[in-house]
Design a protein around this nucleic acid. Structure first.
Lengths: 152, 152
DNA sequence: ATTTATCCCATCGGATAGATAGACTAGTGT
DNA sequence: ACACTAGTCTATCTATCCGATGGGATAAAT
Protein backbone atom coordinates (compact mmCIF):
# COMPACT_ATOMS: atom_id res chain seq x y z
CA UNK A 1 0.00 0.00 0.00
CA UNK A 2 1.14 3.49 -0.86
CA UNK A 3 0.84 5.73 2.17
CA UNK A 4 -1.14 8.94 1.98
CA UNK A 5 2.10 10.78 2.58
CA UNK A 6 3.71 9.39 -0.53
CA UNK A 7 0.55 9.86 -2.51
CA UNK A 8 0.13 13.48 -1.43
CA UNK A 9 3.81 14.08 -2.06
CA UNK A 10 3.55 12.95 -5.66
CA UNK A 11 0.39 14.97 -6.21
CA UNK A 12 2.04 18.06 -4.77
CA UNK A 13 5.18 17.58 -6.83
CA UNK A 14 3.14 17.22 -10.01
CA UNK A 15 1.35 20.45 -9.22
CA UNK A 16 4.66 22.18 -8.60
CA UNK A 17 6.11 20.75 -11.80
CA UNK A 18 3.19 22.36 -13.56
CA UNK A 19 4.26 25.74 -12.17
CA UNK A 20 7.93 25.54 -13.03
CA UNK A 21 9.62 28.93 -13.29
CA UNK A 22 6.67 30.71 -11.75
CA UNK A 23 6.25 32.16 -8.28
CA UNK A 24 6.63 29.74 -5.36
CA UNK A 25 3.43 28.16 -4.15
CA UNK A 26 2.06 28.43 -0.65
CA UNK A 27 1.15 25.41 1.43
CA UNK A 28 -2.41 26.64 1.83
CA UNK A 29 -2.97 27.06 -1.90
CA UNK A 30 -1.42 23.74 -2.75
CA UNK A 31 -3.50 22.07 -0.07
CA UNK A 32 -6.73 23.55 -1.35
CA UNK A 33 -5.98 22.74 -4.96
CA UNK A 34 -5.01 19.14 -4.28
CA UNK A 35 -7.54 18.48 -1.51
CA UNK A 36 -4.94 17.71 1.12
CA UNK A 37 -5.21 18.58 4.85
CA UNK A 38 -2.98 21.67 5.08
CA UNK A 39 -1.15 20.78 8.26
CA UNK A 40 -0.48 17.31 6.94
CA UNK A 41 0.80 18.66 3.67
CA UNK A 42 3.07 20.98 5.59
CA UNK A 43 4.81 17.98 7.11
CA UNK A 44 5.19 16.33 3.74
CA UNK A 45 6.63 19.36 2.01
CA UNK A 46 9.07 19.81 4.83
CA UNK A 47 10.25 16.27 4.31
CA UNK A 48 10.70 16.86 0.60
CA UNK A 49 12.64 20.02 1.33
CA UNK A 50 14.94 18.30 3.80
CA UNK A 51 15.68 15.74 1.14
CA UNK A 52 16.66 18.30 -1.42
CA UNK A 53 13.62 17.86 -3.63
CA UNK A 54 12.04 21.20 -2.80
CA UNK A 55 13.20 24.73 -2.14
CA UNK A 56 11.36 27.02 0.23
CA UNK A 57 11.10 30.73 0.84
CA UNK A 58 9.70 32.34 3.95
CA UNK A 59 7.74 35.53 4.37
CA UNK A 60 5.51 37.35 1.94
CA UNK A 61 5.68 35.96 -1.57
CA UNK A 62 7.16 32.81 -0.10
CA UNK A 63 6.25 29.18 -0.57
CA UNK A 64 7.67 26.06 -2.20
CA UNK A 65 9.17 25.29 -5.57
CA UNK A 66 11.09 22.41 -7.08
CA UNK A 67 14.76 22.40 -6.14
CA UNK A 68 15.81 20.51 -9.24
CA UNK A 69 14.85 19.66 -12.77
CA UNK A 70 11.73 17.46 -12.69
CA UNK A 71 13.50 15.20 -15.17
CA UNK A 72 15.93 14.36 -12.38
CA UNK A 73 13.32 13.55 -9.76
CA UNK A 74 12.24 9.93 -9.78
CA UNK A 75 9.16 8.41 -8.20
CA UNK A 76 11.30 5.71 -6.61
CA UNK A 77 13.07 8.25 -4.45
CA UNK A 78 9.82 9.83 -3.31
CA UNK A 79 8.14 6.56 -2.45
CA UNK A 80 11.16 5.19 -0.60
CA UNK A 81 11.46 8.43 1.31
CA UNK A 82 8.02 8.14 2.83
CA UNK A 83 7.24 4.43 2.69
CA UNK A 84 10.64 2.80 2.94
CA UNK A 85 11.96 0.09 0.63
CA UNK A 86 9.95 -1.01 -2.40
CA UNK A 87 10.37 -4.73 -1.76
CA UNK A 88 7.33 -6.46 -0.23
CA UNK A 89 9.70 -8.28 2.08
CA UNK A 90 12.92 -6.94 3.67
CA UNK A 91 14.99 -9.89 2.48
CA UNK A 92 14.16 -9.02 -1.12
CA UNK A 93 15.21 -5.40 -0.82
CA UNK A 94 18.12 -4.05 -2.77
CA UNK A 95 18.50 -0.77 -0.92
CA UNK A 96 17.60 -1.95 2.58
CA UNK A 97 18.27 -5.66 2.82
CA UNK A 98 17.43 -7.32 6.13
CA UNK A 99 17.60 -11.03 6.72
CA UNK A 100 14.44 -12.85 7.84
CA UNK A 101 14.60 -14.25 11.35
CA UNK A 102 12.65 -17.31 10.25
CA UNK A 103 14.48 -18.62 7.22
CA UNK A 104 16.69 -21.64 7.18
CA UNK A 105 18.42 -21.06 3.87
CA UNK A 106 17.60 -17.89 2.06
CA UNK A 107 18.73 -19.10 -1.35
CA UNK A 108 15.99 -21.71 -1.33
CA UNK A 109 13.19 -19.47 -0.07
CA UNK A 110 10.26 -19.39 -2.46
CA UNK A 111 8.75 -16.30 -0.93
CA UNK A 112 11.96 -14.41 -1.46
CA UNK A 113 12.26 -15.66 -5.02
CA UNK A 114 8.80 -14.45 -5.96
CA UNK A 115 9.01 -11.20 -4.04
CA UNK A 116 12.34 -10.33 -5.58
CA UNK A 117 10.61 -10.39 -8.94
CA UNK A 118 7.91 -8.08 -7.65
CA UNK A 119 10.41 -5.68 -6.19
CA UNK A 120 12.45 -5.64 -9.42
CA UNK A 121 9.38 -4.93 -11.51
CA UNK A 122 8.27 -2.18 -9.15
CA UNK A 123 11.72 -0.62 -9.08
CA UNK A 124 11.95 -0.73 -12.85
CA UNK A 125 8.78 1.32 -13.05
CA UNK A 126 9.25 3.76 -10.20
CA UNK A 127 12.97 4.35 -10.68
CA UNK A 128 12.35 4.67 -14.38
CA UNK A 129 9.64 7.28 -14.16
CA UNK A 130 10.69 10.87 -13.61
CA UNK A 131 8.40 13.60 -12.40
CA UNK A 132 8.78 15.24 -15.80
CA UNK A 133 7.81 12.07 -17.63
CA UNK A 134 4.76 11.54 -15.48
CA UNK A 135 3.75 15.15 -15.83
CA UNK A 136 4.01 14.83 -19.60
CA UNK A 137 1.82 11.77 -19.61
CA UNK A 138 -0.83 13.60 -17.64
CA UNK A 139 -0.59 16.54 -20.02
CA UNK A 140 -1.12 14.24 -22.97
CA UNK A 141 -4.25 12.78 -21.43
CA UNK A 142 -5.52 16.25 -20.68
CA UNK A 143 -4.85 17.43 -24.23
CA UNK A 144 -6.61 14.44 -25.70
CA UNK A 145 -9.62 15.07 -23.51
CA UNK A 146 -9.71 18.75 -24.45
CA UNK A 147 -9.76 17.87 -28.12
CA UNK A 148 -12.56 15.47 -27.39
CA UNK A 149 -14.63 18.16 -25.74
CA UNK A 150 -13.98 20.66 -28.52
CA UNK A 151 -15.09 18.23 -31.18
CA UNK A 152 -18.39 17.54 -29.43
CA UNK B 1 4.53 -4.71 2.38
CA UNK B 2 3.63 -8.36 2.42
CA UNK B 3 2.00 -9.27 5.73
CA UNK B 4 3.37 -12.08 7.84
CA UNK B 5 0.13 -13.88 7.25
CA UNK B 6 0.61 -13.95 3.50
CA UNK B 7 4.26 -14.80 3.88
CA UNK B 8 3.59 -17.67 6.26
CA UNK B 9 0.77 -18.87 4.05
CA UNK B 10 3.04 -19.17 1.04
CA UNK B 11 5.74 -20.88 3.06
CA UNK B 12 3.23 -23.36 4.44
CA UNK B 13 1.74 -24.02 1.02
CA UNK B 14 5.17 -24.69 -0.44
CA UNK B 15 5.86 -27.16 2.33
CA UNK B 16 2.55 -28.88 1.68
CA UNK B 17 3.20 -28.94 -2.05
CA UNK B 18 6.40 -30.77 -1.21
CA UNK B 19 4.34 -33.47 0.53
CA UNK B 20 1.73 -34.00 -2.16
CA UNK B 21 0.02 -37.36 -1.96
CA UNK B 22 1.44 -38.11 1.45
CA UNK B 23 -0.26 -38.09 4.83
CA UNK B 24 -1.82 -34.79 5.90
CA UNK B 25 0.45 -32.54 7.92
CA UNK B 26 -0.26 -31.31 11.42
CA UNK B 27 -0.21 -27.63 12.34
CA UNK B 28 2.40 -28.27 15.01
CA UNK B 29 4.80 -30.00 12.65
CA UNK B 30 4.35 -27.43 9.93
CA UNK B 31 4.88 -24.66 12.46
CA UNK B 32 8.09 -26.18 13.76
CA UNK B 33 9.46 -26.84 10.32
CA UNK B 34 8.72 -23.38 8.98
CA UNK B 35 9.45 -21.47 12.17
CA UNK B 36 5.98 -20.04 12.48
CA UNK B 37 4.11 -19.40 15.77
CA UNK B 38 1.73 -22.40 15.92
CA UNK B 39 -1.38 -20.56 16.99
CA UNK B 40 -0.82 -17.96 14.37
CA UNK B 41 -0.32 -20.59 11.71
CA UNK B 42 -3.54 -22.23 12.80
CA UNK B 43 -5.41 -19.06 11.92
CA UNK B 44 -3.75 -18.87 8.54
CA UNK B 45 -4.40 -22.47 7.59
CA UNK B 46 -8.00 -22.06 8.60
CA UNK B 47 -8.27 -19.13 6.26
CA UNK B 48 -6.77 -21.12 3.43
CA UNK B 49 -9.18 -23.93 4.13
CA UNK B 50 -12.19 -21.66 4.13
CA UNK B 51 -11.08 -20.42 0.75
CA UNK B 52 -10.86 -23.84 -0.74
CA UNK B 53 -7.08 -23.96 -0.96
CA UNK B 54 -6.62 -26.54 1.75
CA UNK B 55 -8.39 -29.63 2.98
CA UNK B 56 -8.40 -30.57 6.64
CA UNK B 57 -9.06 -33.62 8.73
CA UNK B 58 -9.64 -33.69 12.46
CA UNK B 59 -8.57 -36.23 15.02
CA UNK B 60 -5.74 -38.68 15.00
CA UNK B 61 -3.93 -38.89 11.70
CA UNK B 62 -5.49 -35.56 10.81
CA UNK B 63 -3.96 -32.36 9.55
CA UNK B 64 -3.85 -30.31 6.38
CA UNK B 65 -3.24 -31.06 2.74
CA UNK B 66 -3.69 -29.20 -0.51
CA UNK B 67 -7.26 -29.22 -1.78
CA UNK B 68 -6.27 -28.76 -5.40
CA UNK B 69 -3.46 -29.23 -7.85
CA UNK B 70 -0.62 -26.84 -6.94
CA UNK B 71 -0.50 -25.90 -10.62
CA UNK B 72 -3.93 -24.32 -10.12
CA UNK B 73 -3.05 -22.31 -7.04
CA UNK B 74 -1.70 -18.87 -7.84
CA UNK B 75 0.22 -16.55 -5.57
CA UNK B 76 -2.08 -13.70 -6.50
CA UNK B 77 -5.02 -15.41 -4.87
CA UNK B 78 -3.10 -16.07 -1.68
CA UNK B 79 -1.75 -12.57 -1.36
CA UNK B 80 -5.11 -10.93 -2.08
CA UNK B 81 -6.77 -13.22 0.41
CA UNK B 82 -4.67 -11.99 3.32
CA UNK B 83 -3.49 -8.57 2.22
CA UNK B 84 -6.27 -7.35 -0.01
CA UNK B 85 -5.86 -5.89 -3.49
CA UNK B 86 -2.44 -5.81 -5.14
CA UNK B 87 -2.70 -2.20 -6.27
CA UNK B 88 -0.77 0.30 -4.14
CA UNK B 89 -3.79 2.57 -4.33
CA UNK B 90 -7.49 1.58 -4.34
CA UNK B 91 -8.26 3.61 -7.46
CA UNK B 92 -5.73 1.54 -9.41
CA UNK B 93 -7.18 -1.80 -8.40
CA UNK B 94 -8.75 -4.10 -10.90
CA UNK B 95 -10.41 -6.46 -8.46
CA UNK B 96 -11.40 -3.96 -5.77
CA UNK B 97 -11.66 -0.55 -7.33
CA UNK B 98 -12.53 2.33 -5.01
CA UNK B 99 -12.57 5.94 -6.06
CA UNK B 100 -10.32 8.40 -4.21
CA UNK B 101 -12.17 10.98 -2.17
CA UNK B 102 -9.62 13.60 -3.12
CA UNK B 103 -9.39 13.45 -6.89
CA UNK B 104 -10.89 15.94 -9.24
CA UNK B 105 -10.64 13.94 -12.44
CA UNK B 106 -9.34 10.45 -12.18
CA UNK B 107 -8.32 10.14 -15.79
CA UNK B 108 -5.74 12.86 -15.32
CA UNK B 109 -4.31 11.64 -12.03
CA UNK B 110 -0.59 11.01 -12.25
CA UNK B 111 -0.50 8.92 -9.12
CA UNK B 112 -3.11 6.61 -10.52
CA UNK B 113 -1.32 6.39 -13.86
CA UNK B 114 1.94 5.32 -12.26
CA UNK B 115 0.37 3.02 -9.70
CA UNK B 116 -1.69 1.28 -12.33
CA UNK B 117 1.57 0.27 -13.96
CA UNK B 118 2.88 -1.05 -10.69
CA UNK B 119 -0.28 -3.01 -10.01
CA UNK B 120 -0.25 -4.49 -13.53
CA UNK B 121 3.35 -5.59 -13.21
CA UNK B 122 2.71 -7.09 -9.80
CA UNK B 123 -0.40 -8.89 -10.98
CA UNK B 124 1.43 -10.22 -14.01
CA UNK B 125 3.96 -11.84 -11.70
CA UNK B 126 1.75 -13.06 -8.88
CA UNK B 127 -1.18 -14.19 -11.00
CA UNK B 128 1.28 -15.80 -13.35
CA UNK B 129 3.13 -17.82 -10.75
CA UNK B 130 1.52 -21.03 -9.56
CA UNK B 131 2.48 -22.82 -6.40
CA UNK B 132 3.78 -25.67 -8.55
CA UNK B 133 5.95 -23.34 -10.62
CA UNK B 134 7.42 -21.70 -7.55
CA UNK B 135 8.01 -25.05 -5.93
CA UNK B 136 9.85 -26.19 -9.04
CA UNK B 137 12.07 -23.16 -9.05
CA UNK B 138 13.01 -23.79 -5.44
CA UNK B 139 13.71 -27.43 -6.27
CA UNK B 140 16.00 -26.38 -9.07
CA UNK B 141 17.99 -24.10 -6.79
CA UNK B 142 18.24 -26.88 -4.22
CA UNK B 143 19.40 -29.38 -6.83
CA UNK B 144 22.03 -27.01 -8.12
CA UNK B 145 23.33 -26.44 -4.61
CA UNK B 146 23.43 -30.17 -3.91
CA UNK B 147 25.51 -30.75 -7.00
CA UNK B 148 27.80 -27.98 -5.86
CA UNK B 149 28.31 -29.62 -2.51
CA UNK B 150 28.86 -33.07 -4.01
CA UNK B 151 31.54 -31.78 -6.35
CA UNK B 152 33.46 -30.15 -3.52
C1' DA C 1 -14.53 -43.09 26.54
C1' DT C 2 -10.28 -41.24 25.68
C1' DT C 3 -7.06 -39.28 22.93
C1' DT C 4 -5.85 -36.35 19.18
C1' DA C 5 -6.11 -32.49 16.39
C1' DT C 6 -8.74 -28.98 14.08
C1' DC C 7 -12.27 -25.18 14.80
C1' DC C 8 -13.55 -20.88 16.51
C1' DC C 9 -14.16 -17.41 19.77
C1' DA C 10 -12.25 -13.56 22.24
C1' DT C 11 -8.69 -10.68 23.45
C1' DC C 12 -4.40 -8.00 23.88
C1' DG C 13 -0.20 -5.25 23.41
C1' DG C 14 2.29 -2.53 20.48
C1' DA C 15 3.16 -0.17 16.47
C1' DT C 16 1.90 2.82 12.91
C1' DA C 17 -0.85 6.04 10.00
C1' DG C 18 -3.23 10.04 9.52
C1' DA C 19 -4.07 14.14 11.31
C1' DT C 20 -3.98 18.51 14.24
C1' DA C 21 -2.37 22.22 17.66
C1' DG C 22 0.51 25.64 18.95
C1' DA C 23 4.53 28.05 19.69
C1' DC C 24 8.73 29.63 17.23
C1' DT C 25 11.64 31.58 13.55
C1' DA C 26 12.99 33.92 9.74
C1' DG C 27 12.16 36.43 5.82
C1' DT C 28 9.46 40.47 3.08
C1' DG C 29 7.63 44.78 2.11
C1' DT C 30 6.73 49.38 3.89
C1' DA D 1 12.42 49.60 12.76
C1' DC D 2 7.95 47.36 12.35
C1' DA D 3 4.29 44.51 11.25
C1' DC D 4 2.93 40.92 8.57
C1' DT D 5 3.49 36.65 6.35
C1' DA D 6 4.61 32.08 5.69
C1' DG D 7 7.53 28.31 6.62
C1' DT D 8 9.72 25.41 10.81
C1' DC D 9 9.43 22.38 14.45
C1' DT D 10 7.81 19.60 18.25
C1' DA D 11 4.37 17.45 20.60
C1' DT D 12 0.35 14.97 20.86
C1' DC D 13 -3.82 12.34 19.81
C1' DT D 14 -6.86 8.89 18.05
C1' DA D 15 -8.14 5.03 15.52
C1' DT D 16 -6.89 1.10 13.33
C1' DC D 17 -4.44 -2.89 12.34
C1' DC D 18 -0.93 -6.44 12.83
C1' DG D 19 1.04 -10.12 15.06
C1' DA D 20 0.21 -13.12 18.42
C1' DT D 21 -1.99 -15.97 22.20
C1' DG D 22 -5.49 -18.47 25.32
C1' DG D 23 -9.13 -21.42 26.05
C1' DG D 24 -12.96 -23.97 25.17
C1' DA D 25 -15.99 -26.53 21.47
C1' DT D 26 -16.13 -30.02 17.98
C1' DA D 27 -15.07 -34.00 15.31
C1' DA D 28 -12.45 -38.23 14.11
C1' DA D 29 -9.94 -42.39 15.28
C1' DT D 30 -8.89 -46.24 18.40
Amino acid sequence: MLSKKAKYAIKALLALADREGEEPMRIADLAREEQIPPKFLELILLGLRNNGILQSRKGKGGGYRLARDPADIYLGQIVRMFDGPLAPVPCASQTAYVRCADCRNEAECGVRLAMKEVRDATARILDGTSLAALHDRVEQVTARRMRGILSD
